[in-house]
């Protein structure tokens, strides 16, 4: 069965306050970088998935992103299906 590699980026929706991001931005200023106008912290999730074909992998990853990795109330996600890994080595 082919192996697919993917990366899902989860970020806070723009309307949601990111206190950790703001604290990190303040720390950047203390490090001498004062020009940061925006710093938002999200998550990157790397996956390897066995699936029958690319379309199946895509739909399964979309399901995971929407129902597990991100909470649509506060987060947006984007999915990058990086490459077909071909047949998994035995």
């Amino acid at each position: 069965m082919p192996l697919f590699r993917a990366r899902v980026q989860v970020s806070l929706r723009p309307s949601v306050l990111d206190p950790a991001g703001e604290a990190t931005r303040a720390a950047a200023a203390r490090l001498g970088v004062g020009g940061l106008r925006k710093l938002r912290i999200g998550k990157a999730i790397d996956l390897e998935l066995e699936a029958d074909d690319r379309a199946t992998a895509q739909s399964q990853l979309e399901l995971l992103s929407d129902r597990l990795f991100a909470n649509p109330v506060i987060e947006n996600w984007s999915l990058e299906l990086l490459e077909d890994g071909g047949e998994r080595p035995a």
Binding site: V16, L17, D18, P19, A20, A23, N71, V73, I74
Partner: peptide
């Protein structure tokens, strides 16, 4: 309860961390 959708909204990091 919010994660399972029985109640709306979400609970997030406190404003001052």
């Amino acid at each position: 309860l919010t994660e399972m959708g029985l109640l709306p909204g979400a609970l997030t990091r406190n404003a001052r961390l």
